[in-house]
Design a protein around this nucleic acid. Structure first.
Lengths: 358, 358
DNA sequence: CTGTTAGCGCCTTCAT
DNA sequence: ATGAAGGCGCTAACAG
């Protein structure tokens, strides 16, 4: 069998084009950079022909090397598995598209070590800036970024000791919105469920705002449950503890008989984000069966695709806009804007579904 | 207010390091490339010190330009919104990590034009290869890729006229597996629901295998419903037509009374992928209420995160492995392997849930 | 062992 | 209007 030699035919370079067009490299370069007015129509035609014939495409790496800018930006993602992330990404891509940027997407998959490695890699590729949706990360990991280093903008979470633009949900307003909704619907025993939040600013803010909102109400009773999704065993125990507490409270408050159907405790669950909500929903389904939605109220920040199906109430984040704005901020920084660090807090939207309406 | 001048301090170059260490660039280069045995311990120490002092990091672009390879590969994705895609991506990242490759992720967001643009961009950045999970794409769009161009491997779908390695689900086996399961459970009126499939090979194969499996059975009755998710109105009409047909069939086969609860028609829905399954589930919920899972059987290829919650039976694809293998194939091609185009078909796993068990 | 030299593909003065 | 020459940061012969 005589297959063709298959030597990948080296791509044409600017020199090849110049030779093919019978001219110098300079003219080709000018053509590529749109300085068309400076070229005689005749030369220009020859260049166009040569480019087409050779299927020439300028080498971005080389251009970048020369110019000192390669139009690459880094996009560091903590968890692509979270629908929030994918949605933000859509906004990022759209903005990059119009601004002529190319996002280098790095997925840390919830591993701090990956995050460090990618950040270093991005730096190595000389990206002009980074958008960071970080894990609970030490400021030192981000050393090369922000302040003295390459421009950075934070998404959803801020990082202690790192001054940089940040864009995300207005967490305080969102948590208040959710809490008030639950109170308005008559729920007075609310559990705020959240992943470990020492490291993640947005979780902290949501939890704090929840407690503040409950306190402002006075009469009602609020609890915070930490749910460590990374450790199934621990998560299981947390949920069991919650079940127990709810049952006990229910029996106290009503008639002494747990689960009295005539006057159930007005318990509601408030999930700090979609992954938590999913875990809760699975737990509730296992405990109460198919009709769990009617037995216990569930509200979540984030609006994952299955929310409508499960009938849970949500607070939808303006994810697309978050991504879009992040790129705009970054672009401004890249272009040299020098203002002090800015925060862009966008409002969430309450979407009421069966789970929390009577 | 006197903010610091904030001039981004130009990153150190190899020349800076050489000067700082009082030596030539070559030695630095040698150090960087691990030719440590050729360096006197003394020089080596000086170099290390200089690098640390200057916080030097070699410029990948420049290295790539010189070496002719930049360790970049392109990853072209049709739809990040589909959980399948994200899962494949995880496998891709893991493999890239061990092989020292850096994936440039491009998300076409279901737009053919985007796909074209990104492919061209990748080419421009001189990626060493591409992994393509394409839209229904013309071979011409992929011109720069495969065969004569840069190495490529296809994921999930093949493209007419393009010879390249491909890795994905064993669609025939998977569709058979699902169909047999439904038949075994006593469903004899099965609707295979799929997005428009002229352009997408995997959808074609699934549909064909479904029909073959039904035919082999003989007695049973199979239908194919095309559901165009991109056009909500059209999708709505398709679903209405399906409802109508099912109702009619049910009344025929049983007692003449539609929806006779004593002996309902043994209807089952077989979704070709997760997006279709979600649309179906929403429709069923709207039509039959919360308990829809017990009224109609739903089985889907793909195993999205909400499957467990909804209790639908699924065929889980080995997504991680698909991604991993794709990179391995690509890596081999990059390293010059010359075999004819290979296909890697991986088996799916049936996960039975409430929706299809009695 | 170590430094010098010559490019990789492109852009950018600076002449012509 | 066009081309020649130099250099971006790095590597790879080729000397010493």
């Amino acid at each position: 069998m005589s297959t063709t030699p298959q030597t990948t035919p080296r791509r044409a370079t600017i020199t090849d084009v110049a030779r093919e067009a019978g001219t110098g490299k300079t003219s080709i370069s000018r053509y590529l950079n749109g300085e068309l007015s400076v070229l005689s129509p005749e030369l220009r035609a020859r260049i166009e022909a040569a480019i087409a014939r050779l299927d020439y495409q300028p080498n971005q790496m080389a251009r970048g090397l020369k110019r000192g800018r390669n139009r690459l930006i880094g996009m560091l993602l903590a968890d692509l598995t979270n629908p929030y992330t994918v949605e933000v990404l859509q906004g990022v891509e759209a903005a990059c598209h119009v601004l002529g940027l190319m996002p280098l997407i790095c997925h840390a998959a919830n591993e701090v070590e990956m995050e460090r490695r990618y950040l270093q890699l991005l730096t190595t590729y000389r990206v002009e800036g980074v958008i960071v949706n970080a894990l609970g990360v030490r400021e030192e990991t981000l050393r090369p970024v922000g302040g003295g280093g390459i421009p950075a903008v934070l998404v959803d979470r801020s990082v202690d000791g790192l001054v940089a633009d940040m864009v995300g949900l207005d967490n305080r307003a969102a948590a208040e919105l959710g809490t008030r909704h639950l109170l308005d619907q008559g729920f007075d025993d609310i559990w705020f469920v959240v992943q470990p939040f020492e490291q993640v600013s947005s979780r902290q803010l949501r939890e704090l705002a929840f407690r503040d909102a409950m306190r402002a109400q006075g009469a009602a009773c609020g609890h915070t449950l930490v749910l460590n999704l990374a450790d199934p065993g621990e998560a299981e125990r947390s949920l069991a503890a919650m079940d127990h507490a709810i049952d006990a409270a229910g029996s106290d408050r009503v008639t002494g008989k747990a689960g009295n159907p005539g006057n159930p405790a007005r318990v509601a669950l408030f999930a700090a984000n979609a992954p938590v909500a999913l875990r809760l929903a699975l737990h509730l389904k296992a405990r109460y069966g198919a009709g769990w939605q009617t037995r216990v109220a569930l509200l979540s920040i984030d609006d994952p695709e299955w929310a409508e199906l499960a009938g849970i109430t949500t607070i939808r984040q303006p994810t697309y806009e978050i991504g879009y704005r992040a790129v705009e901020f970054l672009h401004e920084r890249i272009e040299g804007v020098q203002t002090t660090a800015r925060d862009c807090l966008l409002p969430g939207e309450l979407i009421v579904r069966a789970s929390t309406s009577r």
